[in-house]
Every structure is written in C-alpha cells, then in structure tokens.
C-alpha cells in the first residue's frame, strides 16, 4: 500500500464571500491519470492551483507527495513547486524573448542549475529537436504546448498538472499532445491531473471526477 500522491480531507477554498471549493475529499494514487471535468467556475482550476501549490487552501487538509502544503512557507511552496510539480497551462505561458531551449533551461535554473544538453534532449523527446532556437512566437500552438510539456517534465516531477492543456489546440494537435503525455508517463511514471471540459480529453485518463459549483458530483473510473 503506497501513500497516495494527493490526499485531501475537507479541503475548501473561498475567495472572500465566494466559496470556490466546498469540502472535498480526494485521493489520487501514485502514477494515476485523473481527469477533472466541470463548467467554468466549477472549481476545477481552483483545485488544480491548490494541488500545485500555487494557492493556499482556506480549510481542510491537503497533502501532496507526503507534504502538508498548508504548513509550508512562501519559499517552501516555491521549492515544492519546482521540485515536485510540472504545470502545463492553456495559454502556454512561455517567456516570449527566450528560445525554446532557453525556456526549458529557465525551469532548470530555478530548480538547480541549467544544463543545455539535457534541455535539448528533452525537446528532442517531445519531437522538437529541429526547433530548439526558435522563439515561442515562431512556433505553432501544438509545438508551443510541446515545449511546455518538455519544460514541465524537465525536473522529473512526481506530479504533472495540466490546466486545459489542449484547450487552444485543434483536434490533430490535441491527440498528438495527449499521445505524448501518455508515452512520457509510461517512461517516467509520474501522476497526471488534467483539468478539462472536453469529454474526449477526459477519456484519456484512468478516472474522471466531475465538479459542479465546487462540489464533487460524480466520479467515473475508466481503467485501473
């Protein structure tokens, strides 16, 4: 019996009067691929931010990888993020004035020390060996998202978070990106939490949970 990667009990988050997340109990096993579905404003992004250490819970307990996140300081959370989590955003969020390989190296720099050779390898692994020196503006949406994936996995995180990672992509690119994620997970054995409102994307996971108005309304196990 291994410790679950994510374990929450009565986790809540409120912004002022608005309650974005009602008490939530959730467990995600190590190596699991969890899809989180819901409309906008259903609290799925809030959940992802809490799990990724980008935001602090208002109540309840939240432990990720055995660490109690609410006990960590500001810099402790930063450390947690760089060593434990890889995040992929819908809008990519690449640094516009850095090339693809430099964007990956930036992540290495915050984590420890930059290593250009390793960053190149990571980009080759996501199939961008030929676009190392290009700036984000010179890459297509799918390519940019692949840079993001390379950046997210470069520090060998235990947990990969995706916030609508395919939201801006066409069908073909979406499939490519998800295929890539699946391959990488098979090799590196990290846990995946993908937030999406697309059933098709959610179907790639092992399990899907449905959030509505901050409440877990349904859970569906696809494979184990």
């Amino acid at each position: 019996m291994t410790v679950p990667t994510i374990q929450t009990a009565g986790l809540t988050k409120g912004y002022g009067d608005i309650c974005a997340l009602k008490p939530l109990d959730l467990q995600v096993a190590e190596g699991e691929w969890l899809s989180v579905m819901g409309h906008s404003g259903s609290g799925k992004s809030t959940l992802m931010n809490l799990v990724g250490g980008l935001d602090r819970p208002s109540g309840g307990s939240l432990s990720v990888g055995g660490q109690d996140l609410s006990a960590l300081s500001e810099d402790g959370l930063a450390r947690f993020r760089r060593e434990f989590v890889g995040i992929i955003f819908q809008q990519h969020h690449l640094v516009p004035y850095l090339s693809a390989v430099e964007n990956v190296m930036l992540s290495q720099y915050f984590h420890s020390v930059p290593d250009e050779a390793e960053a190149r390898l990571a980009l080759e692994r996501v199939g961008l060996g030929h676009r190392l020196k290009n700036r984000p503006g010179e890459l297509s949406g799918g390519e940019q998202q692949r840079v993001c994936i390379a950046r997210a996995i470069i520090n060998s995180p235990k947990l990969l978070l995706g916030d609508e990672p395919t939201g801006n992509l066409d069908h073909k690119s979406t499939v490519m990106v998800l295929e890539l994620l699946k391959e990488l997970r098979a090799e590196d054995r990290f846990t995946v939490v993908l937030v999406t409102h697309n059933e098709e994307v959610a179907a790639w996971g092992d399990r899907t949970i449905y959030l509505d108005d901050g409440v877990l309304v349904r859970e569906e196990r696809l494979r184990s």
């Binding site: 060593e83 290495q108 984590h111 420890s112 020390v113 290593d115 390793e118 990571a122 470069i154 060998s156």
Partner: peptide, 14 residues
Amino acid sequence: RQGAQRRKLLAAAI
C-alpha cells in the same frame, strides 16, 4: 541517470 537529481546535487555542491 536522472537529470533533475544530478543537477540538484551539482547545485548543492555549488
């Protein structure tokens, strides 16, 4: 083997 671990060791040494 793992790049992240390797770099962490280096960073600590530095």
